[in-house]
């Protein structure tokens, strides 16, 4: 198993507008010693372009996992989630909501839009590292993901 995960690189799309958070996530992945191919979209529109391989993202890989923040400029995370989950080509991609919001409404709404899981970013770094590790471990090593079907 562990060998599989090491040899098999998983494409992860991080949709996050805050560069501090992007860097923090990268640093945490480093701390967690998890090696994955991480792409970043800075807002909802860019995320959808990436997923649809539009413009500069023509050669972008279809991610195996999306880490999605809810509060994003231009097109917010809820819309991105709704679009992914209603798109026949994208809906199988697991979407993990990774946000600061602890609002019950946000949680409920996200699951109603078929989010695969909802995680509130811990303020504490140690906890954050633990969470990211757990997510990576679960979605990359434990879960059997659907095969990538190219349109």
């Amino acid at each position: 198993m562990e060998n599989d995960s090491v040899t098999k690189l998983v494409d992860v799309l991080l949709v996050e507008d805050n560069p501090g958070d992007v860097r923090l996530t990268i640093e945490v992945l480093k701390e967690a010693k998890i090696l994955n191919k991480l792409s970043v979209a800075k807002d909802g529109v860019e995320a959808m372009d990436f997923l649809h391989k539009k413009g500069e993202f023509q050669d972008a890989p279809l991610p195996d996992l999306v880490l999605l923040d809810l509060n994003l400029p231009r097109k917010d995370g809820r819309e991105v989630l709704a679009e992914i989950k209603s798109d026949p080509d994208l809906k199988r991609i697991p979407v993990v909501i990774l946000t600061t919001s602890q609002d019950e409404h946000d949680i409920l709404k996200s699951y109603n839009l078929h989010a695969n899981c909802y995680i509130t970013k811990p303020v504490d770094l140690t906890q954050f590292i633990a969470v990211v590790k757990a997510v990576e471990n679960f979605w990359v090593s434990i879960v059997k993901l659907p095969p990538k079907i190219r349109p």
């Binding site: 805050n18 501090g20 958070d21 923090l24 509060n71 600061t100 303020v123 504490d124 770094l125 140690t126």
Partner: peptide, 23 residues
């Protein structure tokens, strides 16, 4: 709501990077 999202975000930055420095 603003306090929960928009204040927590910078707070998390402060706290997390301080901890990263500490680490």
């Amino acid at each position: 709501y603003v306090a929960s999202h928009d204040l927590q975000e910078p707070l998390r930055m402060v706290a997390s990077y301080l901890q990263l420095i500490e680490k």
